[in-house]
Design a protein around this nucleic acid. Sequence first.
DNA 1: ATGCTGTGTTAATGATTTCTTAATGTTGAT
DNA 2: ATCAACATTAAGAAATCATTAACACAGCAT
Lengths: 232, 232
Amino acid sequence: MIFKVLVVDDEKDIVDLLKYNLEKEKDFEVITAGDGKSALALAVTEKPDLIILDIMMPELNGFDVCKKLKSGVITSKIPVIFLTAKENEIDEIIGLELGADDYIQKPISPRKVIARVKSVIRRVYAEKEKTVKTDEYIKFKNLEVDSIAHCVKIDNEDVFFPKKEFQLLRFLLSNRGKVLSREILLNEIWGENIFVVDRTIDVHVAKVREKLGVYSDYIETIKGLGYRFHAD
Amino acid sequence: MIFKVLVVDDEKDIVDLLKYNLEKEKDFEVITAGDGKSALALAVTEKPDLIILDIMMPELNGFDVCKKLKSGVITSKIPVIFLTAKENEIDEIIGLELGADDYIQKPISPRKVIARVKSVIRRVYAEKEKTVKTDEYIKFKNLEVDSIAHCVKIDNEDVFFPKKEFQLLRFLLSNRGKVLSREILLNEIWGENIFVVDRTIDVHVAKVREKLGVYSDYIETIKGLGYRFHAD
DNA sequence: ATGCTGTGTTAATGATTTCTTAATGTTGAT
DNA sequence: ATCAACATTAAGAAATCATTAACACAGCAT
C-alpha cells in the first residue's frame, strides 16, 4: 500500500527535506502545504493517510490546524505527527490533548522521521496490511527487488524499472501466489483517490513482463480475476 | 453483495448519468429522487446503503436533507456523499459537521464517482463484506481448492479452472453432502439479476467433472433436484 | 521560455479465452 | 416404451486481455 503523507511547514527547506526523504522510500506519496489554511484544504480534498504538522506557523498554527482536523468528520481520523522546535511545545501537545499520534523534535533527522512515520502508520493501519503486503527487499530465485536502493536485479544484472512498474513488480512479488484483482492493484499502487482506467494496469504489466525476460511467464493472467505471480 | 445507492438531484441529467454509470458496475442497484422530500421518504422505505446528495436543490437543500437523515433513527447510519458545485460549499460541509462521508465536486466524472462510492462503501461496510459463505481454502481427500491463489490441486497436480467452473466446484465442495438446486447455483454463482438458461449449469458441471478426473463421480446428479458433491 | 526525454495514461484494434446457447443424444423412472 | 430430465457437443457470442501507438505531462537542460 502506498501511503499519502501531507507535510505542513512554512519553512520550505524542511518541507523539501521531508518530501525528498519520504519519497525515496517507495511507500510514500508526499503532498505539501506551506501554511495552516491550505493544509486544512488539502487534508479534505486529498485525504492523506498521515499529516506531519509544524507547530510554529504564522496565522493558523499547528495546534489550531490539528484542532480543526480532529473536529472535521472527514479528517478526524487522520493521524497527526507534530514537528516541534522547543522543548516546552511537547508539554503543550500532551497538555492540550489534541489527539496527536507522535511528535518529532527539530532539528530533523531524516532516518528518525521515516521511522516515526512508519511506526505511526503501522499502528494506525495495522489491519489493512494483513491481507496484502509490500516487502522492502524480496528475492525470488535470481530475481531481486530492493526498495531501498530502488533496484531490480535479474540474474545479477541491473534492470531499471520506472516507479509504477517497480511498485507493480514489487507488489506482485510480495504477494506471490495470490491472485491480485485490478481493484486491489489500483488501491495499493495508485491509491484510493486516483482514477485511472483498468487497462492502464495491463499496459504496466506488459512492460514489466517485457523487462523480466526469462521470468516474464511468472506473471500469470487469471482471466476475469486479475494477475498472480507464480508461487514457485 | 449488491449495494443500494440512492441518488438525489433535481437535475435529471445528472441523476441519469450517475444511475447509468453505477449500474454499469454490477455491484450497485440505483434508486433516485428529484427533490429532498422524496429523498427522505425513500431513505426510510428503501434503506439504501449509500446516499449521493446534491446540495443545491429547491425547497429542501442537501444540507437540510442530511441533517434530517442524521437525526433519524433508521437513516442516521447511512453514509452520505455530497455533490457540490462551488468551492465554498466544501468549506460549509466541513464547517457544518453534517456527518458527510465524502463529497464529489461537479462537473462529474463517472470514474471518479464510482471510485469514491466504492471507497466509502469499503470503509463503512468493511466487515459486512467479509461474511462470504464459501470457504477460502477447502481440502477434500486429495482435492484442494484455494480461492486466494485461485488454484485447484488434484492429487498435488495443478489443474486450471476458469472463473465460473472454479466457483462452481468451490461452491459444491463447500456444501458437500447437500443437494444444491439449479436455482441456488444460479443465485450464488451467477448472481440474482443475471439470466442464463438452466442448461448452462449442466455444461459447466460437465466441464468440471471432466477436469476432476478420478474425482468426477463425486459430483452426483440428483434428478429433478440438482447436484450434490458426495459427502465422503 | 523552448525543446527534449522519460514516464504514465488512454484509446483503438485484434486475439484469445471463457461463457452461453441450441441441437442432438442419452438415461432412467414410471 | 415413453417422456422428462440431464449429458454432450460444437458453434458462435461475449467478455477479457495483449499490444500498439498516440498523447499528455513533468522534469531537465539548453
